[in-house]
């Protein structure tokens, strides 16, 4: 259900952990919004290659934009052998696989006996893995750690897991400012 409508990968896992942790609806929706804002960047970049397509096309195409489909579409478009229909097919195929694996996971989860603490830790391990994929320079690593420490500090004052959102906004702003400062030198 969530996979059909939201299709956001990490955004969905984050939401699940927040629902499990008793977060409020508004803080989950707000976090999802911030985490998925990067799709705006992807969507605007890909639009450059898709001039002249219909509104209906963009309506469907946009729903399929995630980190992975963006990366593949952009590299295919920039090498030339690619067109709007193939890009749309890729997005729909990726979304279809995502929904199917969610359903399989659901069934397997009901059948297999699992230690709930280990499952809980799976999420942490996955976050660590996804996090390291963004370690392409030292500043990003530092900003991530800053966000982590801030989140721990803020968790003392903010309820409903809002500390995640606030820590993210502050740390990202800091990263943006530091990078801007370096360029001005």
């Amino acid at each position: 259900m969530m996979s059909v409508l939201v299709f956001a990968g990490s955004g969905q896992f984050i939401a699940l952990s927040m629902i499990g942790g008793g977060a409020s609806i508004s803080s989950i929706v707000l976090t999802t919004f911030i985490v998925n804002l990067r799709h705006t960047l992807y969507s605007s970049t890909l639009t450059a290659y898709l001039m002249g397509q219909s509104k209906k096309y963009f309506g469907f195409f946009s729903q399929g934009i995630v980190d992975e489909t963006f990366a593949v579409n952009l590299s295919e478009f920039s090498t030339g052998e690619w067109d709007a229909n193939r890009a749309l097919a890729l997005n729909i195929l990726a979304h279809g696989c995502w929904v199917l694996s969610t359903m399989m996971g659901n069934v397997a989860g009901n059948v297999l006996p699992v230690d709930i603490a280990v499952v809980g830790y799976t999420l942490t391990a996955m976050f660590i893995g996804l996090w390291t994929f963004h370690f392409d320079n030292y500043l990003k690593i530092i900003i991530g750690v800053v966000a982590g420490v801030l989140a721990l500090f803020l968790s003392g004052f903010l309820t409903h897991k809002l500390h995640i959102v606030v820590a993210t906004v502050i740390a990202a702003t800091l990263g943006c400012m530091i990078e801007g400062g370096k360029k001005d030198d």
Partner: peptide
Amino acid sequence: WLKYVPTSVFGALVFSE
């Protein structure tokens, strides 16, 4: 700004978890 959102959100989540 958007470039620093993913690393921040994962950092915050990982530390919290």
